[in-house]
Amino acid sequence: MATPDFILGLRESIGHAPLWLSGVTAVVVRDAEVLLVRRVDTGHWSSVAGVIDPGEEPADAAAREILEEAGIVAEVEALVGVFTREPLSYANGDQAQYLDLVFRCRWVSGEPHPADGENTAAAWWPLDALPALPDTHAERLRLAVSHQGPAAFRRRNGG
């Protein structure tokens, strides 16, 4: 996966130290189907996801990632969830943790294809016949498809 230039610049200063990043997960719905991409790095099917660039609006980042990764034009309809992902370490030793903003999006045009080299496939999947998904993506997909009302979020400290 391509690492954004701003992260490469930060890594020059902080090395492998933990880096807090903001990201988006975009769940694109078309009728009774959902857009999924197969990731180059893991081989897993997932929703489109990516890092928000500095100064970029989160909804714009979701639409950009959909177009860049799958060649699809989509309209962002709703923020459906805000979550902190578990800390992770990459193969090169870099450490990161993500604030993940999950958006439900509506297909506007285009047919899916792996558009930028981050994925080996992009396709519409029937909601009643999804492939195996990583737990976080399965949860976010369910949340986006069934979304009603305000965005969901977790609280670890009560209230």
Results as ranks from 00 to 15, higher is better:
residue 62 A to S: 14
residue 154 R to E: 12
residue 125 W to P: 04
residue 51 V to Q: 04
residue 36 L to Y: 04
residue 135 D to R: 10
residue 76 V to M: 01
residue 98 Y to R: 09
residue 6 F to E: 14
residue 38 R to W: 04
residue 135 D to G: 06
residue 154 R to H: 13
residue 111 E to C: 08
residue 96 A to V: 12
residue 14 I to M: 03
residue 70 A to Y: 03
residue 103 F to H: 12
residue 5 D to C: 01
residue 39 R to D: 08
residue 135 D to L: 10
residue 13 S to G: 01
residue 146 S to A: 15
residue 27 V to P: 00
residue 112 P to I: 07
residue 56 E to Q: 14
residue 36 L to E: 00
residue 17 A to I: 09
residue 128 D to Q: 15
residue 96 A to R: 07
residue 150 P to I: 10
residue 157 N to K: 11
residue 124 W to R: 11
residue 36 L to H: 01
residue 103 F to E: 00
residue 59 A to Y: 10
residue 102 V to T: 04
residue 93 G to V: 05
residue 79 L to A: 07
residue 5 D to H: 09
residue 67 L to W: 11
residue 117 G to P: 08
residue 4 P to C: 11
residue 132 A to G: 01
residue 82 V to K: 13
residue 47 S to T: 15
residue 86 E to F: 08
residue 108 V to W: 14
residue 33 E to F: 02
residue 3 T to H: 02
residue 1 M to K: 07
residue 78 A to Q: 12
residue 62 A to G: 03
residue 116 D to L: 11
residue 29 V to A: 01
residue 17 A to M: 03
residue 3 T to Y: 05
residue 119 N to D: 11
residue 104 R to T: 05
residue 74 A to T: 13
residue 139 E to N: 10
residue 105 C to I: 13
residue 9 G to Q: 14
residue 82 V to I: 15
residue 82 V to E: 01
